[in-house]
């Protein structure tokens, strides 16, 4: 098809599989680290706010390819011979935790203040207030932007090409080098990314409209 053999297509599909693996890794890691970041960002304690905000500023101020390189070389000077997936996964975790932390902080703060006050009036402990009253409402607000950010995660895994991780972008690059059919190869790669990202974009918008109506 279009001058590419089925093996070539399979090669791209395998890359797409690794893109999905790295995206999931980035999202799961980003959730695990991002949740505490969001809590610290909206905390009452000044020191927690300062530290978490510095972390977010730091990660958001450095390009993701550079973060990938720093992690990659950092691991190797630590004496670890790890596959590129580990370095890419750590970099994606750092990247998505900063953005998710910032998104979720906004969602926690979007819950009206009166909800906190009402929960206090009902003699709930601070933990109960947060877990039973605020969090369920914040999660509802957080769904559309979080799904929207998944698109960013999938797209930004493409930056792992700089450290030679075998994802969709890297496999497309290799395939182009051997076939010299850039339009075909990169159009197929773009379509594969689109197939992964577009449903997420649509879903995010649908959730957003649903939330607005509610």
């Amino acid at each position: 098809m279009l001058g590419l053999s089925p093996e070539h297509l399979l090669f791209l599909l395998r890359g797409a599989g690794w893109t999905i693996v790295l995206s999931l890794l980035g999202f799961v890691g980003g959730t695990i680290v991002g949740l505490p970041v969001a809590l610290c960002r909206s905390s009452k304690m000044r020191s927690l706010r300062v530290v978490s905000s510095a972390y977010v500023q730091l990660v958001q101020g450095i390009p993701l390819p550079v973060i990938m390189f720093v992690v990659y070389f950092g691991l190797s000077i630590g004496g670890y011979e790890l596959p590129a997936l580990v370095a890419a996964g750590i970099a994606m975790t750092a990247y998505s935790s900063a953005y998710l932390g910032e998104i979720w902080k906004g969602c926690i703060e979007a819950v009206p203040k009166t909800q906190w006050e009402a929960a206090e009036c009902l003699a709930l402990t601070p933990v109960q207030r947060f877990v039973d009253v605020i969090l369920p409402q914040a999660v509802r607000i957080a769904i559309p932007p979080t799904v929207g950010f998944l698109v960013q995660i999938v797209k930004n895994t493409s930056y792992s090409v700089v450290i030679g991780f075998f994802d969709l972008t890297y496999s497309a690059k290799v395939l182009n080098n051997s076939t010299f059919k850039p339009f075909t190869v990169f159009t197929i790669a773009a379509l594969l990314y689109f197939v992964i990202c577009y449903p997420l974009s649509v879903l995010s918008r649908r959730y957003e409209r649903k939330l607005k109506r509610a």
Partner: peptide
Amino acid sequence: VEAIRNTPLVIQVFWLFFGLAV
């Protein structure tokens, strides 16, 4: 807008740069 926003910049750049080279 949808095509650009749902594909990575790297792929767009490669498409353009290597495509023009061919």
